[in-house]
Design a protein around this nucleic acid. Structure first.
Length: 427
DNA sequence: CCTAACAAGGGTTCGGCAAC
DNA sequence: GTTGCCGAACCCTTGTTAGG
């Protein structure tokens, strides 16, 4: 290899102003032109040592100046042949073109990553980190295995990289701009968890919250919508987490949407934005809310918005701005209260919750199990309950009752608790 | 101004597919 | 077989426009 360094010249010549300060190191010609990246000899195709930044990527001093054997291209083939040093240039080019298969994979991975990031409008600056993950994962895959190829691995790595960083990425759009099939993509999700353990550490809930915020901002629904969705998410997360992130986002935002005043945003538009189907949300609401709490009268997602709102209100997850106005939910509530049975409950730290001021007053919690729903009232004096002929006043649902195998006890799931800001009169 | 026809978007239902 | 999700057909509602 010659003492001078060779750099890529496969660019378009943007001007032909001769640089009088330079002379070709190989042929001595003064016929030097300035391209976008460098100064090039028009007679032999050699690029001079004087550096210019590449227009399409950040300048990398290591590659341009110190690459082993000069991993570069020395002009196009026709250019090399046209010079009087064609034999030597061809030889140098062969040396220059020599790369290991792994180096070729990295190069093709770089190209594939940048191509996908460009198509998805993600910053190219992420490509360096993604490539590092790509290398780590590929090193763990045995030779000849299915997902080792660039076409297979790159889209998978990009997907998990952004999911890990809680950055929303559309699986559908990713597959559209990738060569991997949906089937293969889904197949790779399982081994990926073991190949990249850091992925398990991602805060999935944080990703969902980010998506809720993104939806709120996209449809300009206001922060009350965001907080309400967040509250529903917190309340139901453990019960609804066994599905895709976007479906969870769609479920909680759709519930909020249906419980809020008409604002011109449809559930359909919301689902389309999330890349999920409205029928999926319909089924989720039916299973996770209607069937789970054994609510009757459900017709369909939108038609039963009022019913959904009543259920959410009774569960205590609706903010004041979303709660039903008086009289709106009367019939439903009454239907739940009828036919009560008294349930005896032993509360461990009840004093801290209901009487944090240590006043010398006794508070009694009376509970009713009504078709699996727990209703409660707190009475200051036990005799009040007795003297009122065991009449339940001001009852509200506060939880759910599940019978245990040992019928001496019931499992209580409280839907809300009361901050210890003072002794409650009634709940 | 009224009405009918049409289009478009939203919503519902059901079957298919893939994963378990 | 069950579950979860998607796709597509179909229905419904609403808005627009043309004709009387």
């Amino acid at each position: 290899m010659a003492t001078h360094e060779l750099v890529k010249i496969d660019s378009i010549v943007v001007d032909s102003v001769q640089n009088p300060l330079e002379r070709c190191d190989v042929c001595g010609s003064c016929n030097i032109v300035e391209t976008r990246e460098c100064y090039t000899c028009r007679d032999c195709g050699i690029v001079l040592e004087v550096q210019k930044l590449e227009y399409h990527r950040p300048y990398d001093a290591d590659i341009v100046q110190y690459a082993v054997l000069g991993k570069t291209q020395m002009g196009y083939k026709s250019e090399r042949r046209a010079t009087k040093n064609s034999v030597r240039l061809e030889g140098l080019n062969r040396l220059d073109s020599h790369r290991t298969s792994e180096e070729n994979v990295v190069i093709s991975a770089k190209i594939a990553i940048k191509s996908i990031l460009t198509n998805l409008d993600f910053p190219l600056s992420d490509s360096v980190s993604i490539l590092e993950v790509f290398k780590k994962i590929r090193a763990q895959l045995g030779k000849g295995t299915k997902f080792r190829s660039t076409e297979m691995l790159v889209p998978c790595v990009i997907y998990f990289y952004y999911k890990h960083n809680n950055t929303p990425i559309s699986e559908r759009e990713l597959l559209e701009v990738s060569k991997i099939s949906k089937k293969d993509f889904n197949e790779f999700k399982i081994p990926m968890a073991s190949l990249w353990p850091q992925y398990k550490e991602r805060d999935r809930k944080e990703y969902i919250i980010q998506r809720i915020l993104e939806i709120t901002e996209h449809f300009d629904l206001g922060m009350s919508f965001y907080y309400q969705s967040y509250k529903i998410l917190s309340r139901f997360y453990e019960k609804i987490k066994n599905t895709k992130d976007d479906v969870i986002v769609g479920l909680v935002t759709s519930i909020t949407l249906l419980c809020s005043q008409p604002n011109g945003v449809s559930v359909s538009a919301l689902c389309e934005r999330l890349g999920i189907k409205m029928s999926t949300i319909h089924r989720q609401v039916e299973r996770r809310v209607i069937e789970r709490f054994r609510v009757s009268g459900f017709r369909s997602l939108v038609k039963s918005a009022g019913l959904l709102k009543k259920v959410m209100s009774k569960l205590g997850v609706l903010d004041p701005a979303f709660v039903c106005v008086d009289g709106e939910s009367g019939d439903y509530e009454d239907s739940l209260v009828d036919g009560a049975d008294i349930v005896q409950v032993v509360l461990g730290n009840a004093t801290q919750v209901f009487n944090n001021l240590n006043e010398s007053k006794d508070f009694y919690l009376f509970l009713k199990n009504i078709n699996g729903y727990l209703f409660a009232t707190i009475i200051q004096n036990h005799n009040t309950y007795i003297n009122n002929n065991r009449k339940f006043a001001n009852v509200k649902s506060v939880g759910k009752v599940e019978k245990c195998e040992n019928k001496k006890f019931v499992k209580l799931e409280l839907w809300r608790y009361y901050n210890p800001t003072g002794p409650p009169l009634t709940c």
